[in-house]
Design a protein around this nucleic acid. Structure first.
Length: 479
RNA sequence: GGCCCCAUCGUCUAGCGGUUAGGACACUGGCCUCUCACGUCGGUAACAUGGGUUCAAGUCCCAUUGGGGUCACCA
């Protein structure tokens, strides 16, 4: 009885994939997956000034990285293509002519320049007035051979009402509208027309988009009515703003998917943070993708705008990195290796897998993880000067040497045995672990903060660990 | 300014007439501890204001205030 769900994400390829756009894509994607429906990706490139092929590629790559696969669209095709608007101009033209024929739209020969003059004149008289197309060509009978746009004939009275899946009933009086342009003089459709023709011909059943589009929805519903077609369900999402309440943009920090990828975020964590922005599921904060697909619904979407919180985002990312259920070891390794290699390190994935437990609970991003594991993959650790000067000093030479000697006698090079042997020595000499831990840590890792000392010793292997302790002792002795 | 939308801790939010107003992030005190983390126990912190409706309003209605969106041959 209910038709199969078909939703879409229709970005404009004018730059990067913005984190806010990802959120609207996500809500659509979740709805499709939850209902076994189709998720369509459509490229709205009718703004030829700003659209670029590079941007299309960035968007596709970002969507792929995020795991939001599309069932129809660029690269995968589908029965309702093409999925790029500039390849659909004939379809828009045909639909525009249909509206002209049925008297729902008309050719307007007013030029942009003429209208700009009229607009300026009005503003000059009354700065607060809003210019609206006066309907000059509305009832024009002649058809001069001049360039023209196609305008929609907005009903002069009545109103448009629809029930938004998030905001409930929305009523807008028609008197608030003007005869808007469907098709530019060069035959390229404007947003509202292209959007409606595409959604209609692509069989879209629900349109979910940002609240900044809510003003377009009444116009689009008029168009559906003009075509004699029932409009799809509508759902608007509250806006994600910058911490200061402005529109979220580059100047507020990272806003593109690519930046978060580069910073070592997980795609699941990105989606997890974004979904909780404007949607909730009781007290649950952390979700796997599967859980999201199951739990998502429109009823639990909030209506208030919100502000982006980078710290909470990082916390969600950290949560995903800590939890093997959310980030299995093999996934962890696959994502971490490129970041290690980016540091110029040569790494064996099997070895990476072995040392991940050392940093599971500590690393917040893969960049952070690579940094924390850096010392493992070098012959000589990168030495922090302050750490070296504070701990690799004459007073610690003996401890470092003896520790190396004690460890050397351990037959089984594993954490427990190494720790036991060390503790035995400490007990015998009435020493405290604190007396040797920091100097040893600096010797082994080059830093004052690291995973547990004996995890580190074990991970470095007999030769590596003993060598580092002894050469550090030399450095300390020379001071 | 017109039209539209919104309003619970600093932030994301739970709440769908009766709650000591809950959780998370952030901040913060203690515990744990070889560092850093993790973990754990605790703390500070919110219903914008004014009217109604009701035995009873964070929850319903109205107004005010505040915030946001949008007013193109951009999307």
């Amino acid at each position: 009885m209910s038709q199969a769900v078909r939703v879409r994400f229709a970005p404009s390829p004018t730059g990067y994939l913005h984190i806010g756009g990802v959120r609207t894509a996500l809500f659509n994607w979740l709805w499709a997956r939850k209902n076994g429906g189709k998720f369509v990706l459509r490229i709205e490139d009718t703004d030829q000034e700003r659209s670029t092929p590079e941007s299309v590629k960035v968007i596709l790559d970002s969507m792929t990285w995020l795991g939001m696969t599309w069932d129809e669209g660029p690269g995968v095709g589908g029965a309702f293509g093409p999925y790029t608007q500039m390849e659909r101009l004939a379809i828009y033209k045909e639909h525009a002519e249909r509206l002209i024929t049925s008297g729902k739209a008309y050719r307007c020969f007013c030029t942009k320049e003429e209208l700009d003059v009229q607009r300026a004149a009005l503003k000059a008289k009354d700065p607060k007035a809003q210019f609206r197309y006066p309907g000059t060509c509305r009832d024009r009978k002649d058809t001069p051979s001049l360039p023209f746009v196609v305008r929609f004939k907005v009903p002069s009275d009545g109103d448009i009402r629809y029930v938004d899946k998030v905001f409930g009933e929305v009523i807008t009086p028609n008197t608030a509208q003007q005869d808007f342009v469907l098709l530019r003089s060069d035959g390229v459709p404007l947003y509202n027309f292209g959007c409606v023709v595409d959604d209609m011909t692509m069989g879209i059943t629900l349109v979910a988009r940002g609240r900044d589009h809510m003003v377009n929805t009444p116009l689009q519903i008029m168009l559906y009515a003009a075509f004699g077609v029932a409009p799809p369900d509508m759902a608007h999402l509250p806006m994600m703003l910058a911490p200061n309440g402005e529109k979220l943009s580059k100047r507020h920090g990272a806003v593109s998917v690519g930046e978060y990828k580069a910073q070592g975020y997980s795609p699941e964590a990105v989606l997890n943070y974004l979904v909780r922005f404007g949607w909730s599921h009781g007290d649950q904060e952390v979700f796997s993708l599967g859980e999201l697909v199951d739990a998502f619904n429109w009823e639990a979407c909030g209506r208030g705008d919100g502000k982006f919180d980078a710290k909470k985002f990082l916390a969600i990312q950290h949560e995903h990195m800590k939890t093997p259920r959310l980030t299995p070891d093999d996934v962890y390794v696959a994502r971490l290796v490129p970041f290690l290699e980016a540091r110029g390190l040569t790494v064996d994935p099997a070895r990476v897998a072995k040392v991940i437990p050392m940093i599971r609970e500590r690393a917040t991003t893969f960049v952070d993880a690579a940094d924390r594991l850096d010392f493992v993959f070098r012959d000589v650790p990168v030495m922090d000067d302050k750490a070296s000067q504070k701990f690799l000093v004459a007073a610690n030479v003996a401890h470092l040497r003896v520790l190396a000697d004690v460890l050397e006698k351990v037959s089984s090079w594993e954490e427990k045995a190494l720790e036991d042997a060390t503790n035995a020595w400490l007990a015998e000499k009435a020493l405290n672990i604190k007396d040797v831990a920091q100097p040893a840590r600096v010797a082994l890792t080059g830093r004052t903060a690291s995973p547990g000392l004996f995890e580190v010793v074990a991970a470095l292997g007999r030769e590596g660990a003993l060598g580092r302790l002894r050469s550090a002792a030399e450095i300390a002795a020379s001071r």
